[in-house]
Write a protein that binds this DNA or RNA. Structure first.
Lengths: 349, 349
DNA sequence: TTCGTTTGTGCAAACGTTTGCACAACTATT
DNA sequence: AATAGTTGTGCAAACGTTTGCACAAACGAA
């Protein structure tokens, strides 16, 4: 029935007004008399008039849509960031298109292309682990589309970005392990060309140094941080030094793999080996014992990023100086690392 | 620099052709000579011409965008479904807008409104747990927008939908528990106005009946299936009958809560109580022991749903008879339920 | 009375496509 | 030689907005 959406010209015809007057009335233009506005609004409501966003977009050169590229949407972190993004964007009357790169540069390139084609007004990106070539992102800036990175960023003072203080997170987690009595703290690290992985590692390394511990390169293992990578990494680390008594992992998933290997080898946690991860994934509270983890400010990160983007969209990307916001992490101490005093003193199996 | 996107008329001007000829050449219209096509294509490539989707959308009355409403995007299930949706949609050259209802009807209404406003060509919906009023969905159909449900559907033969055979899943999981020797199998159920929860419960109940076991209503607890609900539910069940020796849960999350309560009460799993969940969440493989769970065919479900939607978009919603596709689940047996023969025979702690 | 100002409205172009129709230039058929 | 058909191209309208400009009416000031 109501297969035909009412348009501005329908309103105009019924009210014996011109299209332009109706348009101005709807946008509350000061040149239109109060009486006319009321007539227009009343009829609009009655006919359930909904503006045609596409037409407006074409005319204005703005689509009222933002694009987001994330490595994946499962996992606590990105899900919450996206929630933050959606909330603010919707408040501002903007739609959001979400694309997953599946941690693959090529998919990421396609995503960017898709979003540019859809003529989004701005793009938020968190880079795939495999991204080492950034030309597809240059294209975004060449087209004058506002671009804001979050979490996994392109490290370049010229870009706007929101990140967690990953260094601080790595530092605090490692210090915590040391305070729990660990002396041979290993690290499961991610690809070092990714800012977050590098910074977490750096925090770890500096924490060891600041506490007079040697940073043994053989106690560090880099991988892509899947659960299996965590298993293999832990086996590798134990192969070099069976006396590892603490592990700080760049993410929670790899840490779960590591925990399984440690348990299988007969070690108890946190007694023999204390563990701390990163991201505070949902499952970090489901393991036994629960994982100590660094909480990222997920929703806040999403909100902050989208706010920066909105400012750039409003003022034009070139009129907003690039800036980088750094959020402070929070270490959540749980069973995988908290040794009671007695445990700290007692000895191995 | 390249701040101005080349348009069809730019091409036309440079080639001394009319806009219409260029448009037809680009769409490979048979009326255009091979030579002209080549000239157009060459220049288009050279100028990096990208069609203005908004203009085309306005003219065609189709936005080339699909909308999806999901309860949330964290969790294995919806993440994978969305991946399936995105894959197929992108192959078909369509964009995807994803909205989260956060299990809230009101947010779901807003999402639908947003998508209708954005003039998507079709909508995929998985209902929020709290949705009991379906008027916002009627509006979609009134506007003639194709609509396909998946997983949590509106049970009405008039709508198209893709679901898992949840009944079968519940049945198989329960039978499995019975075969492991369980005689007092409890159930943690979800809201019964949601098809999936009702069907899983029904499968559970029928499995008990078919195996000559009494379905004690006090061994069933309904909730919204959060982890905390699982804890409370389990305490409730144990309060009624401390001899519960099996639990089939409508989802994995509540089951984790239940497992914690059981462990805390000194029971061992699967020895004293065998557990089976639903959804095969990522964390189902991270608990100790790992959770037996019913795998939903996530990606397949997304792909199937979007294919149905695409057909409706292509042919017009009213020209495609409503149909419901039922996918078969797969029971993944893991440690939380598999008692070795010896365990099955031996007695409690 | 004449001129400027304010107030409210309308005209028409523009955004970049797509497409029905017309038409010109050939080619083939009678 | 006249007619019909084919092939390649262009004109112009349409999709639903927004907005610069023009203009008419009403009013006040000189």
């Amino acid at each position: 029935m109501a297969i035909h959406r009412a348009s501005i010209s329908d309103l105009a015809a019924q009210l014996n007004l011109s299209v332009s007057t109706v348009s101005r009335a709807l946008s509350d233009n000061s040149r239109i008399s109060a009486e006319t506005k009321k007539r227009v609004w009343d009829l609009a409501r009655q006919l359930n008039y909904q503006p045609n966003q596409l037409a407006a977009a074409l005319r204005n050169g703005r689509s009222n849509t933002l694009g987001v590229v994330v490595p994946h949407i499962d996992g606590h972190f990105f899900a919450l960031v996206l929630k933050g993004i959606e909330t603010i964007a919707n408040q501002a009357g903007l739609n959001v298109m979400i694309c997953q790169s599946n941690e693959d540069v090529n998919q990421e390139k396609k995503n960017i292309k898709t979003l540019l084609n859809a003529q989004v007004d701005g793009i938020l990106v968190s880079l795939a682990l495999s991204t080492r070539d950034f030309r597809h992102l240059d294209e975004v800036r060449d087209q004058g589309i506002p671009l804001v990175f979050f979490d996994r960023i392109l490290e370049d003072p010229g870009v706007s970005a929101v990140v967690l203080n990953d260094y601080q997170g790595g530092y605090e987690a490692t210090v915590h392990l040391i305070e729990q009595g660990c002396r041979r703290v290993a690290h499961l690290g991610g690809p070092q060309h990714i800012n977050i992985c590098k910074n977490r590692y750096q925090g770890y390394a500096d924490a060891l140094r600041d506490h007079g511990l040697v940073a043994d390169p053989r106690l560090v293992h880099f991988s892509d941080l899947s659960m299996q990578d965590g298993c293999l990494g832990m086996e590798f680390l134990l192969g070099h030094d069976a006396r590892v008594d603490g592990v700080f992992s760049c993410n929670d998933l790899a840490l779960v793999g590591a925990m399984q290997v440690l348990k299988r080898s007969g070690r108890t946690i946190p007694h023999d080996v204390a563990l701390a991860g990163f991201s505070n994934e949902l499952f970090a509270s489901l393991t036994e014992p629960m994982l100590t983890s660094v909480d990222q400010r997920c929703e806040l990160m999403g909100q902050t990023a989208v706010q920066m983007l909105l400012e750039m969209v409003a003022k034009g990307a070139e009129h907003v100086p690039a800036r980088q916001v750094v959020l402070q992490p929070e270490l959540l101490i749980r069973g995988s690392s908290s040794r009671t005093p007695r445990e700290t003193l007692s000895m191995a199996v």
